[in-house]
């Protein structure tokens, strides 16, 4: 029967799409489990090193490391962590929106920016913006290693040492739970002391350093920056998979609804065609 041929092909194509989105959903779900485990495993380390650094910011070392000293801000460096691939809902766009607001504020204050990007999405954005991108990595995959990001961190730290940038920020998504990913902008350098910890800031104290303050601090602070950026990367990975899973799930659901509606229209059309045919035959018979 010729009726509703277009509708049937339409239903077929939506069904195919649904198959793909459902497969992507399942892939993302299993990947999310793995990336989440990885994220939770590395969290204690970055938490602890963060704590030590906060203590350090309260201490009164005789050796002032440049990472601990505030400077007048003329130029800031940002490390933007995004995903390589799309189809993950509003993950990247939410992050970029928050970041662009901040960039706008800096722009109005006359502060220039240098950018290092992780992931092709961020690179694409800053290329369009014609921003000063000084470093880029992408195609890191689901099992990131510290080696992957050491390059861009070194670029940023060197720029900070040389006085080209006066602040360093990291922009990435924080994994709250499967449904929620929170875009965050965190200031890495100079290290800011947490005001709330009064117990430590009330009295004058300092660490005993072995072998000496400079060596220990150099080592520790670089380690700190690396671990925070790495943690950002790992979290962003988990966020990407979670966001993709949710986006693909809603896409599959939407496809299901669409199919239902089209099926209804198709059935109605078919029924109307049959009725019409019968009435034609009856009318023909009556005429004879």
């Amino acid at each position: 029967m010729a009726v509703g041929k277009e509708i049937r092909t339409k239903i077929g194509s939506i069904k195919n799409t649904q198959k793909i989105t459902r497969a992507m959903e399942m892939v993302a779900a299993s990947k999310m489990r793995k990336t989440k485990e990885r994220m939770l495993a590395t969290r204690p380390y970055s938490d602890k090193i963060g704590k030590i650094i906060k203590h350090l910011a309260h201490a009164n070392p005789e050796y002032k490391h440049s990472f601990l000293v505030k400077r007048e801000v003329k130029r800031v460096g940002i490390i933007v962590i995004s995903s390589d691939r799309g189809l993950c809902g509003g993950l990247n766009s939410n992050l970029f929106r928050k970041m662009l607001l901040q960039l706008h504020q800096w722009d109005q204050a006359g502060i220039e920016i240098d950018v290092c990007t992780v992931g092709t999405k961020a690179y694409g954005l800053f290329n369009n913006l014609k921003a000063n991108v000084i470093g880029h990595v992408s195609k890191i995959g689901d099992t990131p290693h510290l080696q992957d990001i050491i390059g861009i961190i070194k670029i940023m730290l060197d720029a900070y040492h040389a006085g080209q940038i006066d602040e360093l920020h990291v922009v990435s998504n924080e994994f709250v739970n499967t449904m929620t990913q929170r875009p965050t902008i965190e200031q890495l350098l100079p290290i800011v002391a947490n005001e709330l910890d009064e117990q430590l800031s009330n009295r004058h104290w300092d660490y005993i350093y072995e072998p000496d303050a400079k060596e220990v601090l150099d080592h520790l602070l670089v380690r700190y920056v690396e671990s925070i950026v790495f943690q950002g990367l790992v979290e962003n990975n988990a966020c990407e998979q979670a966001a993709r899973m949710v986006a693909m799930k809603s896409a599959s659901d939407n496809a299901g609804n669409l199919i239902k509606e089209l099926q209804l229209i198709y059935n109605k059309a078919r029924q109307a065609a049959i009725t019409q045919e019968i009435s034609e035959i009856v009318a023909g018979a009556a005429a004879v």
């Binding site: 203590h55 350090l56 660490y207 005993i208 072995e210 072998p211 220990v216």
Partner: peptide, 17 residues
């Protein structure tokens, strides 16, 4: 790094590799 250390409770703030 400078030799083995033993840390008891209430040790002074200390940081080393």
């Amino acid at each position: 790094e400078e030799g083995e250390v033993g840390i008891s409770p209430r040790h002074a703030p200390f940081i080393t590799r």
